[in-house]
C-alpha cells in the first residue's frame, strides 16, 4: 500500500523521472564513445582501443553508482534486468563469435573482448561487495531462499532474513 502511494505521488514520480534522466544522460554518451572506440579497435587492430572502450563503460558504471549514492537510491529492478540482459547477450555473442568466426578474427578479438567482459563482471562484483558487504552481496543471488513465499519463512528461527 505504501509503495502504491509513493508511486501515485506526482513529486515522487518526477523525482524518479529526474533520476532516470540523469542516468540516461550518463550512459548515452558513454555508450556512444564506447561504440566509436570498439569500431576503432576493430578497424585499427590495436587492443588499446578496446581497453578504452571498456574503460568508458566502467566509468559510466562508476558514475551511475555515484548518482545512486548522491540521490540515496539503488539500482532499480529495470536497470538490473536491462544490465544483466545486455551482459548475457554480449557474452553469448562473444562465445558464438569464437565458435563460428574465422580464425583470424578470433585471434584478434578473443583476448581483448574476453578480458573486457570479465572486467565488467569483476567491477559489478566489487561494487556489490563495497556497497552491501560479502554476505548481503551473496544474498542478492540467493534465489532459493527468496523463492520461499510462505510467511513463516520470514521467522528468524526458520532462517528467514528477507
Amino acid at each position: 500500500m505504501g509503495q502504491r502511494l509513493a508511486e501515485d505521488d506526482p513529486s515522487s514520480r518526477i523525482d524518479r523521472f529526474n533520476r532516470h534522466g540523469l542516468v540516461m544522460a550518463i550512459w548515452a554518451p558513454a555508450v556512444f564513445v564506447a561504440v566509436v572506440l570498439f569500431h576503432a579497435g576493430y578497424v585499427h587492430t590495436t587492443n588499446w582501443w578496446f581497453v578504452a572502450a571498456f574503460g568508458s563503460l566502467i566509468t559510466a558504471f562508476c558514475a551511475h553508482i555515484i548518482v545512486n549514492v548522491v540521490l540515496k537510491t539503488g539500482f532499480t529492478t529495470r536497470e538490473t534486468a536491462l544490465g544483466s540482459t545486455i551482459l548475457v547477450v554480449l557474452t553469448l555473442g562473444y562465445l558464438i563469435t569464437i565458435l563460428t568466426a574465422p580464425d583470424m578474427l578470433v585471434d584478434r578479438l578473443m583476448m581483448p573482448i574476453g578480458i573486457g567482459l570479465g572486467m565488467l563482471v569483476v567491477v559489478v562484483v566489487v561494487s556489490m561487495l563495497i556497497s552491501f558487504g560479502p554476505r548481503r552481496a551473496f544474498e542478492k543471488f540467493d534465489v532459493v531462499r527468496d523463492n520461499n513465499l510462505r510467511a513463516a519463512s520470514r521467522l528468524p528461527h526458520r532462517g528467514g532474513r528477507r
Partner: peptide, 22 residues
C-alpha cells in the same frame, strides 16, 4: 515527460523544479 501526468501547466516551466543536474 508527457506520461508523468503532472499538472498541464508544468509544460511551460517544469513546475519551477527542473532537476539541478540538468
Amino acid at each position: 515527460t508527457a506520461r508523468i501526468g503532472s499538472n498541464p501547466r508544468d509544460f511551460l516551466d517544469g513546475a519551477m523544479m527542473l532537476p539541478s543536474w540538468s
